[in-house]
Write a protein that binds this DNA or RNA. Structure first.
Length: 766
DNA sequence: GGCTCTAAAGTTTTT
DNA sequence: CTTTAGAGCC
């Protein structure tokens, strides 16, 4: 490992490992590099084992990238044992192993936001509350913010957020919250917030479990610490309490998730929390030109209460930001398209190095139109992901039901899809009995007589037929892999017949999507099989899918494309050329956040993030009128434009003033200044390789593995000590024959008990 | 119980 | 403008 590639402050941050440390990493200051080297250093110099290191990131993508880079330095066989991933992914894994302690089955399912809202909606209805007042999204956000603060239903009182409910005229949130939790439990399910919340509860109620993980994780690293919430803070506090070896990396200027419960005070008060902690500041920006860094600095200077730091660049001076004004959103989009074409024509830039950033997804539409008519290939991140599509959710609901029949939301989705004559009336009856008896809907539906369900014989038969077929497919879970099960299920459920019977375009695309899903599952299964010699369970697959984000799926069809996404989605990324569009009041900053100073500060940080994505060029645009919610509104330019140092901002070809970067190079503004805004030649239409929306295909995200002295073996016997390339050391406790050859059960020291197929398992005999 | 038509409402940002 | 939800009809 060549630590000489680091600068002094980076080096210091990497090499200090005796106690807690806070690394304040300015934008583009090589934060990922520090994390990568630090983990490598811990492995190679400090001598920690991979599984003793927990590294938490904000996105799956970040985890994967860092892991890959570490793998390049220490080899994949070590890198893959690292406990690395998002908070949610890591702690859901932990909860699956420890689920017995918290009264949940290990096959619990994860409710996504849509499931959670549906459940809330059902509860509101059952409680006979006004559905207009108690909007599921509002209630869920109240519950979510309570959970982020670790406030359980019993503690949910005036001091803990309930007074706000009264102000909002939704006083019954507490009751809904209580019932919501009961129903989740009844369904053997948890929502996103529970993954953190329940882990905290587990640690509080079972100190011995906490201790186990405290002992295991000798070192904890956290990326993007500025975006952690209180529940995450508590988890880290608990886990690090024993060794106090925790390193958090972040940038208070890039905290943009307060709306989701992120608490910037976590990073601001870290030093008070750990008085013995060391502070490291990474202030040199290696990414951007001087103009870009100065522009970003001048903007963020308007925020109060920041951790003092001075981000600077030793790169080229570059060009000032260019501000462009348009009459309408349509003209704005065309201006961006023309700028892009001009950059391409002049060979200044390639498409893959350009990105258009906007505040809200809805802004992408006009841009898409413009790009299409100009023949610019593009791709969009965000919006509806593959797994959110109705048909895919329906298919996944069946899979969930197979894994966990108690899953209420999955049950409600499946029971009458495809239509089998079981309507709302029946479902409500089933639900009522289930709730009074405190059992799952599935159980009631499977035994209508035993539960005295007041339905006629025909309906009872339909219910039992349905549950029977689910049970029957579920029997296959033992010896079939996720792919086979899904295929069988699509057939058995009647989904396939239903789609193929109708010959409209919708059914056609639905079927294509299902095939796409099947393909994704096949790849996921094969990959895991190849790497671990063990077929992943359906439950594992489902958890993985539920935690996937759009940012995690990246299709590469070889066509170079300009990228479009929200500013939030761009966090952590970099491009040569960045367009930030829609810099208008009530859009950026958004209406909702425009009312409070904290809101404005968050929006300002958001723009800071946007500008600092750029390596070479940044364009800021706004329109004087914008079409929104079916109406054209007149808009005024964002207040943030005026906050950027005029010396860094060029308006329509005229630079406002020369900028003195403290010395020398007087010639810098004679070059690189922008020419006027002349209209570019007409659009090139048709014939080019344009595309509307990149089809997001499911992508297995299992880590890349490779062998290192591991191989498959012909035979083993019970009691044999083995070393598995992923799971580490273990003892064979059982050997049996199956259709796929011999199957062995191994008790691993650090990975629990696993079932492996002998012909695939890459192991060493000890 | 299922389908179709009409009306209303909605647009941050995401694990 | 688009999408979803509800009412009413078959």
């Amino acid at each position: 490992m060549s630590i000489s590639q680091l600068n002094e402050s980076q080096k210091a941050a990497v090499m200090y490992n005796e106690g807690p440390s806070l690394v304040i990493a300015g934008a583009g200051s090589g934060k990922t590099r520090v994390l990568t080297y630090k983990i490598t250093y811990l492995l190679e110099v400090v001598g920690l084992k991979p599984y003793q290191i927990m590294a938490l990131t904000f996105t799956n993508k970040a985890a994967r990238e860092i892991k890959e880079r570490i793998a390049q330095m220490v080899g994949p066989e070590k890198a893959q044992y690292l406990a690395m991933g998002t908070f949610h992914a890591q702690f859901s894994k932990l909860l699956r192993t420890e689920s017995a302690h918290i009264g949940l089955p290990s096959n619990f399912t994860v409710y996504d936001t849509a499931d959670a809202k549906n459940l809330i909606k059902a509860i509101v209805k059952e409680m006979q509350l006004d559905e207009k007042t108690y909007k599921p999204s509002v209630v869920l956000s109240r519950i979510s913010s309570a959970k982020n603060k670790m406030v359980m239903p019993q503690q949910y009182d005036d001091a803990n957020g309930r007074s706000l409910d009264f102000m909002m005229r939704i006083p019954k949130v507490k009751e809904i919250y209580t019932e919501y939790q009961r129903r989740l439990k009844q369904a053997g399910a948890m929502d996103f917030d529970d993954m953190l919340c329940l882990t905290n509860q587990l640690f509080i109620q079972h100190p011995e479990v906490l201790e186990k993980y405290q002992n295991r994780f000798q070192y904890i690293l956290v990326d993007e610490y500025q975006d952690t919430n209180y529940a995450q803070y508590l988890l880290l506090k608990a886990l690090a309490a024993k060794h106090r070896r925790i390193c958090v990396v972040g940038d208070d200027s890039q905290s943009i998730y307060a709306f989701r419960g992120a608490d910037i005070s976590n990073i601001l008060y870290f030093q008070k929390q750990y008085p013995e902690s060391k502070l490291f500041k990474l202030e040199q920006n290696y990414r951007s030109t001087k103009y870009l860094v100065e522009a970003a600095n001048s903007l963020i200077a308007h925020n109060k209460g920041r951790i003092p730091k001075k981000v600077f660049s030793e790169n080229e001076i570059g060009d000032p930001l260019l501000l462009l004004e348009a009459y309408s959103d349509i003209e704005e989009a065309n201006m961006v398209a023309m700028r892009i074409q001009s950059l391409l024509r002049n060979r200044q830039e390639q498409r893959s190095e350009m990105v258009v950033l906007y505040r809200i997804n809805a802004q992408s539409r006009v841009l898409e139109d413009a790009f299409r008519s100009h023949g610019i290939p593009y791709k969009i991140y965000g919006g509806q992901s593959f797994y959110q599509r109705k048909i895919i959710k329906d298919v996944l609901a069946y899979l969930r039901l197979l894994v966990n029949p108690a899953d209420e939301e999955a049950f409600k989705r499946c029971i009458n899809f495809p239509a089998r004559g079981i309507g709302d009336t029946t479902i409500n009856k089933v639900k009522e009995v289930a709730n009074t008896q405190q059992v799952s809907l599935f159980e009631v539906a499977a035994n209508p007589l035993a539960f005295n369900l007041s339905v006629n014989q025909g309906t009872a038969r339909k219910l039992v037929n349905f549950t029977d077929s689910i049970k029957q497919i579920a029997e296959g879970l033992q010896d079939k892999d996720a792919y086979q099960i899904t295929e069988e299920m699509v057939q058995f459920s009647g989904i396939r017949t239903m789609l193929q019977a109708t010959h409209d375009i919708e059914s056609e695309t639905d079927w294509q999507n299902i095939e796409e899903l099947l393909k994704g599952i096949r790849e996921y299964v094969d990959k895991r099989m190849e790497e671990e010699g063990v077929s992943p369970t359906l439950a594992e697959y489902l958890t993985e899918v539920s935690l996937l984000t759009d940012a995690d799926t990246d299709t590469d069809d070889g066509v170079e494309r300009v990228t479009m996404m929200t500013v939030h989605a761009a966090k952590g990324l970099e491009y040569n050329t960045v367009f930030v569009v829609g810099l208008e009041e009530d859009l950026f900053p958004s209406t909702r956040d425009g009312e409070t100073t904290e809101g404005i500060e968050e929006e300002r940080r958001l723009l800071y993030v946007a500008i600092t994505r750029a390596k070479k060029r940044c364009y800021l645009t706004y329109a004087k009128s914008r079409f929104r919610n079916g109406k054209t509104n007149y808009t005024s330019p964002s207040r943030f434009i005026a906050e950027i140092d005029t010396k860094c901002l060029s308006v329509r070809g005229k630079q406002a003033a020369a900028y003195d970067f403290t010395k020398k190079d007087e010639s810098f503004f004679t070059r690189g200044s922008y020419t006027g805004n002349r209209t570019l030649p007409g659009s090139i239409k048709g014939g080019l390789n344009t595309m509307t929306r990149v089809q997001v295909t499911p992508q297995p995200t299992a880590p890349v593995a490779s062998a290192g002295g591991f191989s498959t073996v012909a035979d083993v016997s019970v009691g044999q000590r083995i070393l598995h390339e992923r799971f580490g050391q273990g003892t064979v406790v059982h050997v049996e024959s199956s259709a796929d050859g011999k199957r062995i059960r191994v008790q691993f020291e650090h990975s629990g008990e696993r079932l492996l197929l002998l012909k695939f398992a890459k192991i060493k005999l000890l």
